[in-house]
Amino acid sequence: MSLLVKITLSAALILSTIVPFGAFAIGEKTRGRYKVALAVNLFLFFGTMIVAAVLMFDGNAFAAEGAKETAAAVSSAAGMGYLSAALATGLSCLGGGIAVSAAASAALGAISEDSSILGKSLIFVGLAEGVCLYGLIISFMILGKL
C-alpha cells in the first residue's frame, strides 16, 4: 500500500475513536448519549475497516510495485487468510468473554449461598474459557495453511 493510503487509514482509525468520545464529553448530560456515542463509534470504526479491506485486498496496490497479476492474487488470498485467522480468534474470544461473564457472575452468586459448590461452578467457567482456546487453535490451523 502506498504511504498516503496508510496515513489516511491511520488518521481515520484515530478519528473514529476520538470524535465520538469528544462528542460524548461535550454533549448534554443525558442517559441516551452513551448509546449515541457508542453507535457513532461503531459506525465510524466498521466503516473504516470496510474501506481498509477494499483498499488492501483490491490487488491494485501491488501494481505500483510491478508485481504480476498472479502474485497479487496470491497476496490477496493470503490477506484473506490472515483476516479469517484474526476473525476466528477475535470473535471466539468475544463469545468466550460473554460466556465467562455470565457463568462467573452466576457462580459467585451460588458460592455466596453455598460454598460447597465451588468446584462445580469453576468447571462451567472453565468450559466457557475453552471457547477462546478453540478459536486460537483454529486460527493457528489457518495460519499453518498459508
Rank of each mutant, 00 (worst) to 15 (best):
G119P: 05
R31P: 00
A107E: 07
D114H: 03
C132G: 04
G22N: 09
G66L: 04
G27M: 14
E69P: 01
A61K: 12
A39H: 05
G47P: 02
L118V: 01
I50P: 03
A77L: 11
F57M: 13
A63G: 07
A86S: 03
F62Y: 11
F46T: 15
I138S: 00
N41S: 05
D58E: 09
E129Y: 03
S84M: 09
G59H: 02
Y82F: 14
L118K: 09
A128H: 09
G90K: 15
G119R: 04
G27T: 11
V40F: 05
I117Q: 05
F45D: 05
V74D: 08
A61Y: 08
S76I: 01
G96V: 08
G135T: 15
A61D: 10
T89N: 10
F140C: 15
V54W: 01
G66M: 10
A71I: 12
N60I: 09
A86F: 06
S105F: 11
S139Q: 08
S101D: 15
C132Q: 15
G126Q: 11
A78I: 13
E28Q: 14
E65R: 14
V19E: 08
I26N: 07
A107I: 12
G95P: 00
F124L: 15
A78L: 14
A52K: 12
Y82L: 14
L136D: 12
L42Q: 11
L136Y: 10
D114S: 08
G59V: 01
A52F: 03
V74G: 03
A77V: 14
A102N: 13
D114R: 10
G130P: 05
A103D: 05
L38A: 06
L94T: 04
A110E: 05
A106N: 13
T70S: 11
G90M: 15
F45H: 07
A71R: 10
A103Q: 08
A85T: 07
Y82R: 06
A53D: 09
E65S: 13
G90Q: 14
A103K: 00
D114T: 02
K120W: 00
A52D: 08
A73P: 02
Y82Q: 09
T17G: 06
D114E: 10
A73Y: 01
V36K: 11
G119S: 12
A102M: 13
V54F: 06
G79N: 13
P20E: 07
D58T: 14
S121I: 12
V74Q: 08
V36P: 00
I50F: 10
S101F: 05
K68D: 13
F43C: 00
A63V: 00
I98E: 11
D58L: 05
D114P: 00
N41T: 04
T17N: 11
